[in-house]
Nucleic acid binder design. Sequence first.
DNA 1: TTTATTATCGACATTAAAGGTCCGCATTCA
DNA 2: TGAATGCGGACCTTTAATGTCGATAATAAA
Lengths: 161, 161
Amino acid sequence: MQFSKSTDYALHALIHLGLSESRNHIGIKELSASLGVSESYLSKIMSKLRQDGIVRAVPGVNGGYELARPADRITFLDVIHVIEGRQQLFECSNSSSRQHRLLAEGRVERQETERWGQGECLVEKVMVGAERHLHQYLREHTIQMVLDEANRIRSAEGIEK
Amino acid sequence: MQFSKSTDYALHALIHLGLSESRNHIGIKELSASLGVSESYLSKIMSKLRQDGIVRAVPGVNGGYELARPADRITFLDVIHVIEGRQQLFECSNSSSRQHRLLAEGRVERQETERWGQGECLVEKVMVGAERHLHQYLREHTIQMVLDEANRIRSAEGIEK
DNA sequence: TTTATTATCGACATTAAAGGTCCGCATTCA
DNA sequence: TGAATGCGGACCTTTAATGTCGATAATAAA
């Protein structure tokens, strides 16, 4: 249970773009050199980000990538959804198992029958709550926050010198 | 990014054991039939749970498994740690990349140098926070809570009839 | 003590997903 | 037009999860 390297690459690439907002476009060469990943692989990831409207891409000479919207409107959850997909954190692998049937038996008229009967599982219920928590946190953290933190660190150095 | 099926099996097996506390030991046959998994695979999972002290196992005639401690002291996090391991949710794959070196440059005397110099990464920092949140939630939810919920549902049926 | 029953453990096979490369194509700009 | 750049599909490699099998050890009952 771990986020993929692709998610790591995507987040770092976006931060690189954010730190380079002054310049126009950043090419895949610069990005891949900065992150230490091959151009070919990183370009796959950038394509996904483009398809989901996180970055814009411009082909041709002097082309490259830029953020498609302000960094404070790109959340960690946005990026993770693009790269990891939207499958849920936990899926009960067998809702028709004996265990579930036993609990579901005779519950034809009860309020909760619909959910249970359609495969809602008490374990899954807990895990869905966990996922909601996690997503809430990731939605509250944006690329801009990381940029701010980076700038704070750098300016603190400047003062010291 | 998803929990493995093994985690699903482990949680359901523990719930089965919890619901069968009156009887002495539950064999792998009954468990695997209840969950719809092969005996051989499930027994691997049960072994892990035993090695980590979540369940006890008794070989021989009429042997089987039982919870090693009260269900309200077995948290979801306990089970996930046993099955999924304790690797962190996110690892920055390249702390010595150009991006990190640029930010770290010249920070020899600053307070935060230790952490940064040893590979702390601003992205990772956010993700570590996310993980803490998730773990907090999973630590607060126990097998007993699921058992209570299951009993609540069953007794509500009983009253209706 | 013998026998049937049950969990344990290591070796292996299969499958699915992540990670990664290559190349031809389309687009842009000088 | 030609060089630079991103796009997308086909393909390969590696890794982890999933799953099976068989030999061994431990236990209780006869």
